[in-house]
Nucleic acid binder design. Structure first.
Length: 426
RNA sequence: GGAGAGGUGGCUGAGUGGCCGAAAGCACUGGUCUUGAAAACCAGCGACUCGAGAGGGUCCGUGGGUUCAAAUCCCACCCUCUCCGCCA
């Protein structure tokens, strides 16, 4: 959520900045609601002040043994007036909240103009795509030939967009998770955290998935509003919801979880293979930092994610998302895209964002400023470090051999206990 | 699942209708003292919000209700702890 004070004081400026992401802020509606809110709120609070003071008077009179009947008569209709005023205020407040909770974050000035992912700007690339002297297979064919990646069985068990893995591929998948966690913990200073894979509606509101993007999440049938997490970002970021954090900053967490996404609205996109699944695993990086630190923190975080690809020797490029492609809660996002030989292009494998105080304000996540002694909103950041399923298929495709086997990247061999070569199941 | 106890400020914890936004302690901040620190003593110190300010309002797990007035009484729900049962 944006700072309501900022929206109130500089609506034109806010609207202009939001226009970069193609969002139209309805200034007339906002101004009308704001004027109404002010009027109704002043009225309500005046009535409340009146009630408070007359109640106090009655209390004193009663204590002094005086007759309070005339006093009671004088306030007889105050209650009704107050109820009406409160109802008005609630209605205006609700409309205002609804409008405001629908407004996305303000993009940084450095975010490039643009409407779609085509307008994202490459800021660096690393490694060069391997030259193949045989016909390249994609991970689906490779997995099929190895008999270790099985979409048909998954479709029987559940439906489309699920996968079953066996033997070497399953092991490689598991090795990747351990490798990523260890690297971020030992080399990059993150704390490991393990969290529930089911969250409530408040948590989804805090990170910005609700109320606007409910259809992207799997909702459980349960007496409470429970959802499967679409990313570890939700539970991990919400660990500081409704609190004033008194520890030292930055606070950096690395978390491995499965992620569940309904992928509503992406019918027909990436239907082949495990690029876009309803369930996938991810190692997520989450940081809580002081406001003035968040720019540097994002650069560092992207570097942590990139380092995984460097250690795996997978070519990638990093792009900054343009205004039209940036997510709802983010002020700035870098995507890391890994080279996929079968598609002859780079595909997203990580998305790293600075949310500034947008999520913190929704969550009321604060820290104590040691200099002023006051509580202030934190800045939150997160990024994939990395999406495990996509990393797995990138390895399969980039490390494939002419006979269809897969070489295990050096760095993973301690995690596969020396397994160097994934070959067809016997 | 059964039976009890409880949810109050950053933390511990008192408060069972009005003088309570809330005692006390810890923590924190400033001061005195000290070469410096500690200790001791003195003072300050909840969050959010409206307002240029004076000042106003809201908040004692959540949501309803009773009342002129609710942390306090009533109802529902959520959560935590203890004991019993069951269970990976």
């Amino acid at each position: 959520m944006l700072d309501p004070k900022l929206v109130r004081r500089e609506p034109e400026l806010v609207a202009a900045k939001l226009a970069k992401r193609g969002y139209h802020l309805d200034l007339d509606k906002l101004a009308a609601l704001e004027a109404k809110r002010r009027e109704v709120q002043l009225n309500t609070e005046a009535l409340q002040a009146e009630r408070n003071s007359s109640s106090k008077t009655i209390g004193k009179a009663k204590a002094a043994g005086e007759d309070i009947e005339p006093l009671l008569a004088a306030v007889s209709d105050l209650g009704n007036k107050l109820d009406e005023a409160k109802a008005d205020l609630d209605a205006v407040q609700e409309a205002l909240d609804l409008l405001l909770s629908d407004v996305p974050n303000i993009p940084d000035d450095e975010v490039p103009e643009g409407e779609s992912e085509e307008d994202n700007v490459e800021i660096r690339n690393w490694g060069s795509p391997r030259k193949f002297d045989f016909e390249i297979r994609d991970h689906v064919d490779l997995g099929d030939q190895l008999d270790q990646l099985d979409f048909e069985t998954a479709a029987k068990l559940t439906g489309s967009r699920f996968a079953v893995m066996r033997d070497g591929i399953a092991r490689l998948h598991r090795a990747l998770i351990q490798f990523m966690l260890d690297t971020h913990i030992e080399d990059h200073g993150y704390r490991e955290i393990h969290v529930p894979f089911i969250v409530n509606a408040e948590s989804l509101y805090g990170t910005g998935q609700l109320p606007k993007f409910a259809e992207d999440c799997f909702k459980l049938e349960h007496d409470q509003d429970y959802y499967l997490i679409p990313t570890a970002e939700v539970p991990v970021t919400n660990t500081l919801r409704d609190s004033i954090y008194e520890g030292s900053l930055p606070l950096q967490y690395v978390c491995h979880t499965p992620c569940f996404r309904s992928e509503a609205g992406s019918y027909g996109r990436d239907v082949r293979g495990m690029i876009r699944q309803h369930q996938f695993e991810k190692v997520e990086l989450v940081q809580f930092v002081q406001p003035e630190q968040s720019d540097l923190a994002l650069e560092a975080l992207v570097g942590h994610a990139e380092r995984i690809l460097q250690l795996l020797e997978l070519p990638y490029r990093t792009v900054i998302l343009c205004g039209g492609d940036i997510g709802f809660s983010a002020a700035r996002t870098y995507d890391i895209e890994v080279w996929l030989p079968s598609q002859d292009t780079y595909r997203e494998i990580s998305s790293c964002s600075n949310f500034r105080d947008f999520q913190s304000r929704r969550m009321q996540a604060r820290f104590r400023n040691k200099e002023t002694g006051k509580s202030e909103l934190l800045h939150t950041l997160n990024g994939s470090g990395l999406a495990v399923g996509r990393t797995l298929l990138a390895i399969m495709e980039n490390y494939q051999q002419e006979d269809g086997s897969i070489i295990v990247p050096d760095i993973l061999r301690s995690y596969t206990r020396g397994l160097t070569h994934i070959q067809a199941s016997g």
